[in-house]
Each structure stands twice: as C-alpha cells, then as structure tokens.
Design a protein around this nucleic acid. Structure first.
Lengths: 138, 138
DNA sequence: GTAGCTGCAAACTCTTTGCAACTCT
DNA sequence: AGAGTTGCAAAGAGTTTGCAGCTAC
C-alpha cells in the first residue's frame, strides 16, 4: 500500500476505487499537475472517474496536508504531493517547474521575519527565469 | 496630474472619466486591493462605473507595468501600484500585507538562478506569519 | 445497515468579451 | 470624424455543490 493511501486511511477516509486511482496518479506524478492533468491521468486508468471527484479529493488531501496547492500566477491551481520543503524555479519558456532547496535562504527568511516582529508560519519563493543558452559563455 | 495619469497618457491612453477615477483610487490605495475593492472605491466616486471597466483598466495597467497583479493563494487577484521592488509579509491573523526589501535576498536569488543555469526574469517571495506578542521576551 | 463517497448536472465565482452607444482628442 | 472607451449582459474558465444512487466498512 502506498504511503498516501496509508495516510488517508489513518485520517479515516474510505479507500474507494476512484480515490485509489487518484492517489496512484499523485504518487507517481513527478511534476506539479493541474486538476485537469490529474483528471486526464486518472481517466486513463479508470474512464468512469469524474472531475468533481478529483476536485473533492484534492481539496481533502490539501486539508490533510498530504498535497500542496500552488497558484503559480496562472488562472488555475496546481498540486504536488508533499515532500520535504523546497522552492520552485519556473522556466518561462517551457512552463517546467524545477524544485530546489537552499539553506542560506531558509536562514535569511527566518531572520527577516524575526526582525519584523513576526513568527514565520509559512513562506513561498518562486523564481521565474529563462534558460541560459550560450554554450560558449565567457 | 498624478504620476499614473501621466504615464497612461504617455502610453497613448485616452484619459476618460472612469479611467481617471480608477487611477485616483489606485494612486491613493495604500494597500493591495482586489478588483472588487477597487470597484467599490471607484463606485463611491462615480456610481456609474462598471466592473468590466475596472477589469479592463487593471489589465491594461498590468501590461504597461504600472501595477502588479498578485495571487496571494486566494481565489482572486489583488493589485498594487508599482513602486520599487519589494516583497510581502502577510499577517495570517489580520490579512494585512506588509512590504519589505532585503538586499541580501536579492543577491542570493540571482546567485541561485545563475547556479541553476537560468537568467532570472522575475521572482516572488511571500512570508506568512504571526505577530510575536510577548512584550517581555527573554 | 449506514455513513461516506460518487457521477452528473446545475450553480457559483471570478474574469473576459461582443456590441451598440458614447467620448476624448 | 474616428479610434478608443464604456456599460451591459452574455459567455468563459475554473471550481463547488445538491442530490439520488452506490460502496466500503
């Protein structure tokens, strides 16, 4: 049984067919799929699945903190299954989302918040960039 | 004439009544209003204004880089008139948005992007926190 | 058996758009 | 005069929800 399934059961959710399918899709997603993308992938495994169920399931998982909803300045949401803390670099040419971590950044953010009299609860950093192409850079 | 108005005229926009009203609202906004909020404030000055015009105007201003659209993990957009570059600290208890700048952060972000082979085009950092209350901290 | 889950379709929210009338320049 | 702008209402995109039937427990 997958880790996601395990955690859902612990949370008292029934492990139904559609749910299993969606969890499988999420568990295997290496990217940050939109609801539509999750729906398409789930439908490939079980064509009877409804997009309403995908929405409902993602909302539940978000509330249980098993996935994270992102709004990357698009008109829709994307989701990712929760892993260790990281940030996102979005390639403006391809839309690809690349994850990264940076220790210095973590420390700096804590420091900034504290200096402003705040306890940091959450934060997000997104970089939007273009791949540097010149192979013969000086 | 306000700075925003000046820049709109330079961009070749006609300075109509509704436009003036919206620009006045934006120029006087010290916060990060939603479209709805801009609309309400504009209506108080000119009740005949339509929300379609508010949307159209904000989209134009965003394209001209005179305002910036934000998606603070809400289901709608907020706008702010462009000022020098800064980031946001969102008070989770009040929803208040506090701006800040940090030189170290700017340098660090450039460095991270470059190390990953990217030219940084844009970025956003948001901190979500809770005000530290204890006046007698150790 | 029953609480919870599902698909469907309708409803809802936020945003955009076609159009005829109007208004800056 | 004419291009650009407006309000209105309708349409669009993304998301949520009421409901009757179904399913895991």
């Amino acid at each position: 049984m997958s880790d996601l399934e395990q955690r859902c059961i612990e949370a008292g959710l029934k492990m139904t067919g559609p749910r299993k399918t969606i969890l499988k899709v999420l568990g295997e997603a290496g990217d940050h799929p939109s609801v539509e993308a999750v729906y398409e992938r789930a439908k490939a495994l079980d064509s009877s699945i409804s997009i309403a169920t995908v929405y409902r399931t993602l909302n539940m998982l978000d509330e249980l903190d098993l996935v994270t909803r992102h709004e990357f300045n698009e008109s829709f949401s994307r989701y990712e299954t929760n892993m260790e803390h990281h940030h996102h670099l979005i390639d403006l040419e391809t839309g690809q989302v690349i994850e990264f971590q940076n220790k210095e950044l973590e420390l700096l953010k804590e420091k900034i918040a504290r200096e402003m009299g705040f306890e940091l609860v959450d934060h997000r950093l997104e970089l939007y960039g273009r791949k540097i192409k010149n192979k013969a850079s000086k």
